[in-house]
Design a protein around this nucleic acid. Structure first.
Length: 638
RNA sequence: GCCUCGGUAGCUCAGGAGUAGAGCGUUUCCUUGGUAAGGAAAAGGUCGCGAGUGCGAUUCUCGCCCGGGGCUCCA
């Protein structure tokens, strides 16, 4: 990468015409610009430049930026600094990376369009540091870093710059926050300032509102679900992979599969077409390029021959491209397309990862609904809101709801919004933003609040007003004309891993309150464990095991050389909902002595009675076999 | 990504410039039991990885990797 930095009194530019056919069109307001007291960074991306190079370049730029005390930065793509330029797609990506890095310390930095001929006018300052040029490659990267480490003077100046940069970025962050306003929407549809609202019995909402607006953590502890996920041998970190990628043990994999099946059943019953689309996409695809600009998540990049692909962060692309190729009549609408993404990939900043709460690879049930008009979109949005609510209530996951809306849209639909709080029977957090900063005009999330009082979004539905245009998705209306549908993005449960995180955090809360932790019976890996009193009952127990399995129950048999007390204890530690102790009496009568976790009672039940009990508790829920040895003596320890 | 704290047996953790510690778990043997731990013995370690300073480093210094917390961000 080659950069030329000029500290200018002013710099103004105007795009003339495309230099490259493949570049996306840009908006009118992006075509020209003028900035004052600016560090202009002319940049050429060269073959072989990596994200590391961009980071290093950003460090250099930061140093100069703070030294010359410029007010802002303009990143100006400029091909003429190098004779071995990177391919355009690569350059766009690298410039994006560099821009993101620069934004970290200069939040209001600008960039001029890539791939256009631009005329420009400027006045460069005359001080000694006003003109600097640098070549940054992965070869000299290590050397420069090494030098930086040994050069104490440079270190001091860097840490000082860091402090200054932090002050700058903090104040700017506060400023950008001011662009949206938080309110409480009460049951009567009235808006309140958060400060003046009497939360009364709605303590969860108060916590959530504080989390969203103040960003101050009341206390900080390791999220308890991390300990539980290991203890219960559900899932664990995998240091051999990238951060945020987990290794699922049989029990965790089973729970995940059951949740996925459950939500897929719901969505398919709801009328969605289930599809499967690729996990990686071409950076150069014109529609995707546009979309990427509107969803600035960090991506994984995969190389194949000379092409670069990014790993999907949702199922949007595959479904939108599919929708583009469909012939759709207004009679087909609303049209739902659904995929469970295995996986969605987001290269989150390493510091943002936390147990199962936030991952770099996660599974998301992603549904898109094409709607004819706003009226239909609103109806669908409402109906999907209730699906989400139903799901969380069935899972017994408490949630706080946030709506985010563009101000004009809210003002036109006040009545409609007030219905949501009313139907929930509790007020909701409402964020109003002046300008649409993403593809959606409105959305809601249902947020779970964990033991550290931190919120994370589960269910979400958004109304997308942009992508049917971007992806050229159209339907034929009654009048025979092609029209653009509105698109709802919905994830009813949110990420599956996050659902498990919520379930584990909820159980941690139960334990804090001295209650017995447990999973719903339909999700419990072992639903019933058979514990013999002695080896004499082994044969009878094996028959029980076989019978229960045949009835569609996940049963296992503790045939280890341990005392019955020890086996009961181990079953309790595994949160197994039913434990049947079998001795001579049971063998003679055929009735089992069943320890019931839910209420701590013991009951005498026949095999078919206990099977029925388990079936009733799993009603309308999917079933999967136990993916483990059914005899504990044969089971390895995780 | 930045700041900060941590990484010692399969797990949870103690220790600390001079032969590496406990409990649980594992293996073997004894024990055949009525609803949350029966007994004994044995095995088990490159003290996260790599450099540096020491006669000597698991211990001190630096770098890297992995994890927790904070900032930022989200499904």
């Amino acid at each position: 990468m080659r950069i030329l930095e000029l500290h200018c009194d002013y710099f103004s530019y105007k795009t003339e015409k495309k230099a490259l056919k493949s570049v996306a069109d840009i908006k009118e307001e992006e075509k020209a610009g003028r900035v004052e007291n600016v560090l202009v960074v002319f940049t050429s991306i060269e073959e072989g430049d990596t994200a590391e190079v961009a980071k290093k370049a950003a460090l250099e730029i930061r140093k100069n930026f703070l030294e010359v005390k410029a007010k802002t930065i303009l990143l100006h793509p400029y091909a003429h600094l190098s004779s071995k330029l990177a391919r355009p797609a690569e350059a766009v990506y690298m410039l994006g990376e560099l821009y993101l890095e620069i934004k970290n310390f200069a939040p209001d930095a600008h960039k001029s369009p890539f791939g256009y001929y631009k005329s420009f006018e400027m006045r460069c300052k005359g001080h000694p540091l006003a003109e600097l040029s640098k070549t940054i490659t992965s070869e000299n990267l290590e050397r420069t870093l090494e030098k930086a480490g040994k050069d104490a003077v440079l270190e001091v100046s860097l840490s000082k710059s860091q402090a200054e940069a932090d002050v700058v970025s903090q104040s700017l962050a506060t400023e950008s926050k001011m662009k949206s306003h938080f309110h409480i929407l009460d049951l009567d549809g009235k808006l309140h300032d958060i400060q003046n609202f009497n939360f009364g019995s709605f303590g969860g909402l108060a916590e959530f509102a504080e989390y969203e607006t103040k960003k101050v953590r009341s206390y900080s502890e390791e999220p308890p679900h991390i300990k539980i996920m290991k203890e219960q041998a559900l899932v664990d970190y995998e240091p051999a992979s990238d951060s945020g990628h987990f290794s699922w043990r049989p029990k965790g994999a089973l729970m995940k599969k059951l949740l996925e099946k459950a939500i897929t059943d719901i969505v398919v019953d709801y009328g969605a077409m289930q599809v499967e689309t690729p996990i990686m996409y071409d950076f150069e695809h014109p529609a995707l390029k546009k979309y990427l600009n509107r969803f600035p998540a960090r991506q994984y990049v995969v190389k194949s021959d000379n092409k670069e692909f990014f790993l999907r962060f949702a199922a949007c692309f595959g479904q939108f491209i599919m929708a583009h190729s469909l012939t759709i009549s207004h009679r087909h609408l609303p049209l739902k397309i659904y995929e469970l993404t295995h996986y969605s990939f987001r290269r989150e900043q390493s510091g943002e990862l936390a147990g199962l709460k936030r991952l770099r690879a996660f599974s998301m049930p992603d549904m898109h609904t094409l709607c004819r008009d706003f009226e239909s979109a609103k109806n669908e949005f409402e109906s999907q809101f209730h699906k989400c609510r139903q799901w969380n209530e069935d899972m017994e996951i408490p949630f706080e709801t946030a709506f985010r809306v563009q101000e004009d849209f809210f003002n036109e639909n006040k009545e409609w919004y007030s219905k949501f709080a009313k139907s929930l029977g509790k007020p909701i957090l409402l964020e109003l933003f002046k300008e649409r900063y993403a593809y959606f005009i409105t959305k809601f999330e249902m947020n779970f609040i964990d033991n550290a009082r931190k919120a994370s979004g589960l269910s979400t539905v958004q109304i997308d007003v942009e992508n049917s245009e971007t992806f050229d998705i159209a339907f034929t209306d009654e009048d025979g004309k092609k029209k653009r549908p509105l698109i709802l993005h919905a994830s009813i449960p949110g990420a599956i891993e996050r659902v498990i995180y919520a379930l584990l955090e909820l159980n941690a809360m139960k334990m804090k309150e001295g209650k017995t932790p447990m999973f719903p019976v339909w999700l419990s890996p072992t639903q019933i464990r058979i514990v013999p009193l002695s080896e004499k009952q082994n044969k009878f127990c094996e028959k029980l095991l076989k019978d229960l399995k045949q009835m569609g129950i996940r049963a296992d048999f503790d045939d280890r050389q341990e005392t019955m007390q020890k086996k009961v204890r181990d079953a309790e530690k595994e949160w197994i909902p039913y434990v049947a102790v079998v001795g001579d009496k049971e063998e003679a009568s055929g009735n089992l002595s069943v320890r019931i976790r839910k209420n701590g009672n013991n009951a005498q039940l026949s095999v078919s009675e206990i099977a029925q009990l388990i079936k009733n508790e799993s009603l309308n829920r999917p079933f999967e076999k136990l993916p483990l040895q059914d005899k504990l003596s044969l089971r390895p320890i995780f």
